[in-house]
Amino acid sequence: MTTRKDILCIGAVLWDIIGRSASHMRQGSDVPGRITRLPGGVAMNIAMTLANFGMRPVLLGAIGRDPEGDELVAACAGLGMDITHLYRSEDLPTDRYMAVEGANGLIAAIADAHSLEAAGSKILRPLTDGRLGHAKAPFDGLVALDGNLTRSLLEEIAAAPAFARADLRVAPASPGKAERLMPFLAHGRALLYVNLEEAGLLCQADFSDSAEAAAGLLARGASRALVTDGSRPACDGGPEGLISLPPPEVLVTRVTGAGDTFMAAHIVAEAEGASRQEALSGALRAAARYVSGETAL
């Protein structure tokens, strides 16, 4: 059904509308800058980086049958994605994400992923109807899952036989949606990629650094957790122990998509046989290149 380099990317596939300015900003700021529109969403951002590394991402998400959706599907195909299994809705519009970034980082963002949430389990049909898997032969490859899905659907995935053999990698879409990943602590079958704030929300605790946060997630039931903390050291926590490494020092020119780049680079490194330390180091370097503007998704 799949090849060694296939990976399912499940979640938000939408248009990113990003306003960036070189000025420091605060509430009410009105400054010059640039506004761009490009394919985005957590699942899509991860898929784009995976494709750049030579993998073949298979997208599972919801896109409307509107002009914006047709344009987005064409863009995904042009970027090397397998779009065969996308759910195309007749009555739901294509989702969008809007963010404003200044020299002092992300100022504000709104994620409109209502169509993905409304589509619900329809996006997962290929995993049970024989196209990508079925009851007697569930999908047994890599899966990158984002937290834009509803909590009820994430609860279903955490316990579903369709994912029992998958190498499941999960990330929240934002700190505001981090608590949706609680089911993966209860079932302990996924590797969680979170930042320090998200780890604290999941554990309902305040952590001083990524190592403390990773240990906290493991204590709450996670099978493995990777915790980032901006320019401070990141930590990979698992049954074998904790590994902490600092990210390279770079000038930050953008932030939207950095976490997705980190996750994708880490997945690729481990798929190619890298050790835990090598994979963490490579992912930190990839994220640093991205935020510095050296590479694009």
Score class of each variant (00 low, 15 high):
Leu116Val: 01
Glu272Val: 02
Glu101Thr: 03
Leu245Met: 11
Leu201Cys: 03
Pro138Glu: 10
Gly130His: 12
Gly241Cys: 10
Tyr290Arg: 08
Ala225Leu: 03
Gly257Arg: 06
Leu50Asp: 05
Ala164Val: 06
Phe53Glu: 14
Ala103Glu: 06
Leu185Glu: 00
Cys76Glu: 04
Pro233Tyr: 14
Ser223Arg: 15
Ala271Phe: 02
Val170Glu: 03
Ser174Lys: 10
Gly41Trp: 14
Leu226Phe: 13
Pro32Tyr: 09
Ile63Val: 15
Thr228Asn: 12
Ala62Ile: 06
Asp30Arg: 08
Val268His: 07
Ser210Asp: 14
Asp66Pro: 07
Phe139Asp: 10
Glu270Val: 13
Asn148Phe: 02
Leu14Ile: 13
Asp16Pro: 09
Thr2Cys: 09
Arg37Thr: 09
Met81Ser: 08
Gly259Asn: 07
His187Asn: 14
Leu92Met: 03
Leu92Gln: 07
Ile18Glu: 00
Ala265Leu: 01
Met1Ser: 14
Glu156Leu: 07
Ala75Thr: 11
Pro246Phe: 11
Asp209Glu: 03
Leu201Ile: 12
Ile63Leu: 02
Glu117Arg: 12
Ser281Tyr: 03
Arg4Leu: 04
Cys203Trp: 02
Thr261Phe: 04
Ala62Asp: 13
Ala265Trp: 00
Ile123Asp: 02
Met55Gln: 14
Ala219Pro: 07
Tyr97Phe: 09
Met1Val: 12
Ala288Thr: 03
Val42Tyr: 02
Gly241Val: 05
Gly130Tyr: 08
Asn52Leu: 13
Lys5Asn: 15
Gly105Ala: 00
Gly282Trp: 00
Pro248Phe: 03
Leu106Ile: 07
Ala113His: 06
Gly259Asp: 11
Ala75Arg: 11
Ser152Met: 01
Leu192Thr: 04
Glu278Asp: 04
Val170Tyr: 03
Arg165Thr: 14
Ala214Glu: 08
Leu132Phe: 14
Gln277Ile: 01
Pro247Ser: 14
Asp129Ser: 10
Glu156Ile: 03
Ala144Pro: 00
Gln27Tyr: 10
Gly133Cys: 05
Gly19Gln: 04
Ala271Leu: 07
Pro183Gly: 13
Asp70Gln: 11
Ala158Phe: 03
Gly33His: 12
Gly105Met: 00
Ala186Asn: 13
Val255Cys: 13
Met263Pro: 05
Thr150Val: 10
Ala286Lys: 02
Glu278Ser: 06
Leu127Asn: 06
Ile7Tyr: 00
Arg88Leu: 15
Gly64Trp: 05
Leu280Arg: 08
